[in-house]
Amino acid sequence: MKIKLIEIAHGRSGDKGDAANIGIIAYDNKGYEIINKYLNAGKVKEHFKGICLGEVERYELPNIRALNFILHNTLGGGGTVSLKHDAQGKTLAAALLRMEFEI
C-alpha cells in the first residue's frame, strides 16, 4: 500500500546555521508507528537529493509522535550568507511531506 506522508503527518522546519531542522509529527499513534518504521535518515537524505548536501541525523520523540531530522549543509551557508529564497528552510517541512512510500 502506498502512503502519502502529508496524509498522516504534519510538521515544522527551521534553521540551525547551515543545517535545516525538520520535525515531522504523526496525527495518531498508528501514523507514528508508520513514520518510525519507514522514515529513516537514508530515505530523507535521498528525498532531499540536490538540496541536502550533508549528513542527515534522525531523532525520535515518541511522546509527541514526532521525528526530528537535522539536514546538514542544506541552506546555502545559512543566516544572511545564504542567497536562497528560502534561506531559513521554512518550507522544507512541506517538502518532506511530499514523500510517498510503500508500506
Binding site: R12, K16, N21, G23, I24, I64
Partner: peptide, 24 residues
C-alpha cells in the same frame, strides 16, 4: 507539538545555561 520540534537538535539534550532539558 509543532512548536516543540521547531529548531531543536538532539531532543534529549536541549542545552541552555540553566539546564539540559529532555524534550522526549
Amino acid at each position: 507539538a509543532e512548536q516543540l520540534v521547531y529548531e531543536i537538535g538532539d531532543p534529549k539534550k536541549y542545552i541552555t545555561p540553566d539546564c539540559v532539558a529532555d524534550f522526549t
